[in-house]
């Protein structure tokens, strides 16, 4: 019974760890959409004729 419990606990913790490791960091996850340098983004918007969407957080 105890070994079954330990096995189940190990599996759950392992799954959680894998899930955690697979969550991308902010930069990996968002880099295609989000700029982080406001001056560069402003130049880019000028070049592309786009408006800026700036999130201050």
């Amino acid at each position: 019974m105890r070994s079954l419990f330990l096995l189940r606990k190990t599996l759950v913790l392992g799954a959680l760890a894998l899930g955690f490791l697979s969550v991308p960091s902010f930069s990996e996850d968002l880099s295609p959409l989000w700029q982080t340098d406001l001056d560069k983004a402003t130049l880019l918007a000028k070049e592309q004729g786009k408006a800026l969407l700036i999130v201050f957080r």
Binding site: A41, Q48, K50, L53, I54
Partner: peptide, 24 residues
Amino acid sequence: DGQVVRPDQDLLPLYNEYVCVRVT
């Protein structure tokens, strides 16, 4: 804030019309 920076698929086309910047 998480929803703003990770937009749903239905908001993504709107975001793509902008140059998006996040300032922290």
